[in-house]
Structure formats: C-alpha cells, structure tokens
Design a protein around this nucleic acid. Structure first.
Lengths: 188, 188
DNA sequence: GATTGTTTGTGAAAATCGGAACAATGTCCA
DNA sequence: TGGACATTGTTCCGATTTTCACAAACAATC
C-alpha cells in the first residue's frame, strides 16, 4: 500500500482522504457517469480530472459577470478561485457613478444601463450578484430579463425569479446559524 | 384568503413562499421544538421570530473574529448581515505588518501573535477564516489551539481540524459547479 | 350552537441517501 | 498458467428525509 508512490494512479481511498466523502460514495457517484477506474488498480488521475471537468462542464470556459462593485464585488474580482473552474470574469457592473469607469483586475466597471447590451454582446450566462440586500431582488430581476440563466447570489435575500433561472445562494447566514446551533448544543 | 391583510399572523404557506422549504417541512421542523402555531389560524409572527431566535441561539449575542484582513476580510468587516444574526465582530487579525494597527469599521486589525490573548480575553468562540488558501490549514489549526470551536471558512480548502471544532465552508466553487452543471443540462 | 372553511400537527408511506458486503476484474509474482 | 492480493462497481439493506394524507383544533357565519 505504501510501496508504490506513484501519483498518476490513485485509489478511491487515497483520493477521498482529502475530500468530504467516503470512498464508497465516491465510487458510486462516479459509476453513475461511467466506470473510469480499473479494478484492482485505482483511478488514472489525469483521466479522472478530465472526466470530472467534462461532467461538471468546467472543461470549457464560461464567461461570468460581477454585478455590484462594492467591497465584496471588488474582492470577488480579485478572487483566484474562479480560474480553477475555468471561469473568466469578463464584465463588472455598478450603479454608483463614482465607480463606473474604474478598472479593477483588468476589468472595467460599467454602468447598470449598459448591462443588457454587454451581457448579450459577450454571451454571458452566469452572473455573480454582490449588491446590497435591498436592491438584490430588483437587480436579480433585471439580470433575468437580460438573459442570465444562473446567478450566484451573495446578498442575504431569497431571490424570487422566473422559472428557468437557477439561483445558488452563498448563504453565510445559514452556515453561521448552524454553527451557533452546534455551539449552543455543546454548552448544554 | 386575501381578505385579512394582517402581518401579525401568517400561515406556514405564506411564510414558506419566501423560503426554500415546503409548508409541511416547515411545520414538522417547528413541531419538533414545540407547537407554536394555532390550528386554523397560523403562526404569530412576532412569537415565531422569538422562538426561532431562541432555538438557533441568535437571541443572545455572539462575538466573532475575522481572521485575515485582505480584500475579502475587509468586505466581511463591512458586511451588514452579521448584525441580523446578533453577531458582533469584536476582533480582526492579519499577519501583514502593513495592515496591523489600521482600523476598519471600528475594529482594529491586530497581529497574529496577539490572537490567542485577545480571543481568550474577549471570550470569542466563532471565527471567520478569510485568509489565502495556502495558509488556511495552518491558521485553522492555530485557531483551534486558541479555543475556537466554530469556524466559517471562506478559503477553498478542506480544513482538517481536531474533533470538537465545527467547520462550515462557504464554498463558492461547488455552488458555481452546480450552477454550471445545471446550465449544461439545459443546453443538452 | 351547528356548520363550514382553514390550518396546524402528526402518523404512515414513499423516496432518497449512505454504508456494508460482495462479486467481478485487474495486477503481480512465482 | 495459477494463486494471492488489491480495488472497483454494484447490490442490498437500514436509516434518514420528504411527501402525502388526515384528524384535531380553531375562527367565522348563519
């Protein structure tokens, strides 16, 4: 088990050490999409990476827009994690005239009025929503009208949008709630 | 159904319109902690709010610390959502000498060396981890040593920490992955 | 006060999820 | 070739979660 120190092949056990899943789950999930491993051997890491990227769709590049260029939006513009998912930030928007025209991380901040035009032109289908809570619903609706089909929502608001628009919430609040709930249980 | 436009009482159906749960789930979850509603009427919103806060533990204030005062950390220092959960940011830390001593949103950024001292002194048990991915594990371990029992982790890293320390991941990557996966499915 | 309509709380059924066990398939070595 | 060993892919089973269905409880109206 420790004899061969090759990294080009790894067993489900080795791989899931660093993940939040059990080896069985890992194998089962993968087998749903097809058997990529070799019995008695393990998984070819390079191929596995390719297959997973293909399954998730991160093998092709996706263009995304950051909507809202305040503190959070700016932080996201500099966030390195997007690269790894093959996501390219190709546009940023804000309604504050003081921010429009500024360039952050090579991306020019545009006014909200040019949103539709630019989103269509560049073929953007994913938006990251980083506006204040009280304008999130309104901006979300606008994005839906502009043809955006997927929104990563950072505002602590439950967006109600037309069917066909997927919303994923980065929900700090509920994560914190569950942490507090656990802490409370410990003390009891 | 539309006759009484009172906001002091609402049915599970009305409430869950804005939530991500079904009315039945809502009622069942609540009934686990006790029946707070009146049959044929609905839930007293004020009381329900109090009860949920009590259950979640957000009725009492919790002190939290922001660890890492880069772009993301700074954005979090100004994030308004913490207030609503009765969370008070009472400390911020960074290892960059250029940032230490600066005050953001009324909180002074302290050096990492003073972490243990300050966390203990102020009785902080929840930390928000906003450091770069490559130092997240190390800093997480330090926090665990300082007596932190709950970590909200923003770094795209799976923290391995001693049992008893709860970690919640704000996992932008996996949220984005699921969005892309959905988009891909639509196009097929 | 009886009746009607509404909504909660809950017990039972259905679906989903996760783990254990195991057969199938591969490598390695004599 | 054959046997020992390793690891996948899959089936089965128990547990958990979600949905369904409905009785109990309440308000309103006649």
């Amino acid at each position: 088990m420790l004899g061969k120190k090759r990294v080009d092949v790894a067993s489900s056990e080795e791989i899931t050490q660093f993940l939040n899943v059990t080896p069985v789950q890992f194998r089962k999930d993968l087998s749903y999409f097809g058997g990529f491993g070799k019995r008695g051997v393990g998984y070819d890491v390079a191929r596995l990476t390719r297959e997973i990227e293909r399954i998730l769709g991160t093998d092709a590049a996706w263009k995304i827009a950051i909507v809202g260029a305040g503190k959070l939006g700016s932080a996201l513009l500099g966030y390195s994690g997007f690269d790894e998912l093959n996501l390219q930030i190709v546009a940023a928007f804000d309604s504050d005239p003081g921010r429009i025209g500024k360039v952050r991380q090579g991306v020019r901040i545009e006014g909200a009025s040019r949103m539709k035009e630019i989103l269509k032109e560049k073929g953007i289908r994913i938006a990251v929503l980083a506006v204040p809570a009280d304008s999130a619903q309104k901006v979300g609706e606008e994005l839906a009208k502009c043809g955006i089909r997927a929104i990563l929502n950072f505002a602590p608001v439950n967006l109600i949008l037309p069917k066909g628009v997927s919303v994923s919430n980065v929900d700090m609040a509920s994560e914190l709630e569950s942490l507090i709930y656990k802490l409370k249980g410990e003390r009891a």
